[in-house]
Design a protein around this nucleic acid. Structure first.
Lengths: 247, 247
DNA sequence: TATGGTTGTCTATATCAATAGACATTTAAA
DNA sequence: TTTAAATGTCTATTGATATAGACAACCATA
């Protein structure tokens, strides 16, 4: 940010030092701090920078190794394996698959669960229905290049979009599923963005470690007449994506 | 999310159980789970729900008490003190002070630091300058009702906006500072949203506890001719705000 | 083939985090 | 006034976290 440089780490606060340090190093890697060498500084240097024991740094690096972000080679140093961050533009024409398509080779969309249920107060408000009207809920998990990127819960008016679960399973894309059901075009009406820690279930599906952060986008899409067609809550692994809003 | 209900907590992962539980309870409070009673469930009930010892729950509640979110009364229970989440709309006409104005009584903007410096590659790219050209950097801290909401680092072309630090200190608002320097109107061009853990410095200024999450908005504003006038990186306490994007 | 720099492994010690149980204190309601 | 339900305090024990120091193993290079 301001002047760069690694800040001191805090003690006795419920977050283990090795995890705080792992988070800092992960952030430094993804912001390109070590791009020149392609390596993390030596353990002794990091220990000095963070003001901790070398063993504590080793715990942090072990966690990053587990995540596949770095790889230590005895005698040489600790090499950086990955550093990409997917950009996800949020506009009227926001589509997950198309938006990410040029940044990853292989896109997958997996249908985890499908259910027909009564609209909650929140869902009804967003879809402009009465609470208790039937909606279809889909739980989907989206990958880019075999790496899980986001998990989403989506609701659709049940009457209009009967069979959308099957269509999604076939095409692995909401846009294509809509098309099969006769909705050839739609637009993003509103998006609310928040951030939070991951739940146990999301943590497992997104292959996150505890303490990891989610970017959460609550979005509502409408057809070209402004009628709501989808309300969704998408949870993104915050260290793998960024949102771009162009006004 | 899906059906509600508190999920199990994870062990041996560098994040203390009491902190994970504090995060869950904080989230439950801000999403209105306990609005009926205005109280958190009894410690013994929480301990059962999370599958931990009562003392661990007490550590979590102690942390929330420290944050001023709850207040325990012996013999009665643990009362909820605060639960608001400020909404921050992101549009072409995004202004911090005006956007929040109707949700809080008292808005303050504090100038922490001011410096004239050479534009880095990143800043130059956003402000459409050459790297090394002079820019003014402001570090600002914004409060709503005496509660810190966001900390921002902003860069301005130095030649055009000489004296903007002094103007901000006087008006406590970027919009009014611009007005004083002859820029009566401006628009938000792009916003990038990410999330990350707070640095030690941001943690202190925003009165956060370790492990707390930041929503980070990198924004670029232009004048009505499309010439960049400001590039800023704002860090928001994620549990106090949400962003709304209307398309 | 030395040598310096790096990661890997081991032992030991102190503090924090979590569990367990017991009992005191306070409040509200029976 | 009694009682149930809730928070407050204390002791004890175990495992995770962090520090400290020493040395082995490995790599690149002079």
């Amino acid at each position: 940010m301001g002047g760069g440089g690694l800040k001191q780490v805090q003690r006795q606060t419920g977050v283990a030092l090795w995890r705080q340090i792992a988070d800092r190093i992960r952030e430094a890697i993804s912001s390109g701090t070590y791009d020149e060498t392609g390596m993390v500084p030596p353990e002794t240097v990091l220990a000095l920078q963070f003001g901790v024991n070398r063993h504590t740094v080793r715990s942090a690096l072990a966690a990053l190794t587990q995540e596949g972000i770095v790889r230590a080679v005895q005698g040489r140093g600790t090499l950086i394996e990955r550093k990409e961050r997917l950009n996800f533009p949020i506009t009227r024409r926001t589509r997950f698959t198309a938006g990410i398509g040029d940044q990853a080779r292989e896109m997958r969309g997996l249908l985890l669960d499908e259910a027909k249920e009564e609209a909650s107060v929140e869902v009804a408000r967003w879809l402009d229905l009465k609470p208790g009207e039937q909606v279809i809920r889909l739980e989907t998990l989206r990958h880019a290049d075999r790496r899980p990127v986001s998990k989403a819960t989506s609701w659709f008016p049940a009457e209009r979009f009967a069979g959308i679960g099957e269509a999604y399973r076939k095409h692995e894309s909401i846009t294509k599923a809509f098309a099969e059901l006769g909705l050839s075009d739609y637009v993003r009406a509103t998006t609310e963005v928040t951030a939070a820690h991951a739940s146990a279930a999301d943590m497992a599906d997104l292959e996150l470690t505890p303490g990891a952060i989610l970017l959460i986008a609550k979005a509502m899409n409408t057809d070209l007449d402004g009628v709501p067609v989808q309300y969704s809550i998408s949870r993104f692994a915050a260290d793998r994506v960024q949102f771009t809003i162009e006004n």
